[in-house]
Design a protein around this nucleic acid. Structure first.
Lengths: 234, 234
DNA sequence: ACCTGAACACCGTTCAAGT
DNA sequence: ACCTGAACACCGTTCAAGT
């Protein structure tokens, strides 16, 4: 009989906080955040549920770590949070960071919800905000205006905007929506009118009337342009 | 012995979907959303947990109903979602709705989280959006620009903006923060600089550097002004 | 029609115990 | 130092049964 040195590929790798966090992100990516239970995560890692508590204080701390790791992905994507020198194109630099952040969020759809519910700002998030403020400063913003800017951007600063009726998920057929809209026409005339006006422009579908990338950039530029105007006025 | 017609005040009032929803909102207002369990809600209503399922399909449906009720509160606060006639001051009308919505959200701090996680747009939310679009239209917006406007407002349209490091909750003492900031000064120079610059203006505290009402209105007006500019250009 | 008791499957977490 | 088994308190929910 062979010594059977590798029963399952990486099953012998000892647990670590890093491995726990990576596993948790994998589980959440695959099955959504509601699929992330301590027991399922343990199974994913080939370990007993209670072993996790040796590396992570509790589930809340696990979520904290996941949020930090996701912001770390942004940091990696933009090649570090270094602040450019004075006189840089601040708008382009901010835009690049935020659009990179958005791409990371699109890869991890559960992340916005987790980030939003954190009660403490993670270290990576601190570095991210610091770099945003730094860019604003290099672009000639006062600290006061930079502060306003962060509030105005809100969660858009880290790449997501909470859309309100979003998760249609394509479950419902276009035709159902069309029928429903006709029934509502008298109660909700403006919504119906808007959907009709927009679906004419985009004859492809009634449901896909929101190109999220376009809308995200529209709102982002609206805010950045407004900030620029305030910056120049001061 | 008396007939004991009223053992406990309203204990004999039969359950109803409305009473269940009101009870749920009461529980969430008092103890936060994590205090809202089917068992606790039943207790609040003087009933057995399983009775709730006669009036509400499941907990998700309960949350749907709560979200709808909260938007109903906005509707009540602004005196109905009627759309004003043409040529109205659209900016003031939008502002009024959104600031009223914000007040409702401040009364129910759990509501944003619940509203955000709904997968379907509730009837009251439909009416609210319809009224917003109606106001934009009456103010001379194209359907296309009104659509962009809703996306740009995001959740701010219903009165909240997801602030990222918000729930400080005043737990941490100001002094702790001051000490912490000194320690971070080399790692996070811009955050530290910003906090110092702002706390100079507002010597009252280091923590209370965000007057949320001011910041909310700043961002709201930034967006509304941007929209106005686009409207006038078209 | 409306409410309930008992039970099920599943959570997060503690704690004493193993190696 | 790292991992585990058994147990606890607590979930949402089903289902058959009561009035």
């Amino acid at each position: 009989m062979v010594r059977q040195s590798e029963p399952i590929a990486a099953a012998r790798i000892p647990l670590s906080k890093d491995r726990v966090l990576r596993g948790a992100i994998t589980v959440a990516d695959a099955g959504g955040i509601e699929a992330l239970t301590m027991r399922k995560l343990a199974e994913e890692l080939g370990v007993e549920a209670m072993s996790l508590y040796y590396h992570v204080a509790n589930k809340e701390a696990l979520l904290d770590g996941m949020a930090d790791a996701i912001v770390g992905e942004i940091e990696q994507a933009v090649g570090g949070f270094d602040v450019p020198s004075n006189g840089v194109d601040w708008k382009a630099a901010i835009r690049r960071r935020i659009l990179a952040a958005r791409e990371v969020m699109l890869r991890h759809p559960w992340a916005p919800g987790v980030i939003e519910t954190r009660t403490t700002v993670s270290p990576a998030m601190m570095r991210y905000f610091d770099s945003l403020i730094g860019v604003f400063r290099a672009g000639g913003f006062s600290y006061d205006l930079a502060h306003h800017a962060l509030h105005a951007l809100g969660s858009r600063a880290i790449g997501f905007s909470q859309e309100l009726g979003e998760p249609h998920d394509g479950e419902q057929a276009d035709q159902d929506v069309t029928v429903m809209l006709e029934q509502m026409a008298d109660q909700l005339p403006y919504i119906v009118g808007m959907l009709q006006a927009i679906s004419h422009d985009d004859p492809d579908s009634t449901l896909g009337w929101c190109d999220d990338q376009v809308e995200f950039e529209f709102a982002l530029d609206l805010i950045l342009d407004g900030l620029e105007r305030l910056r120049n006025k001061a």
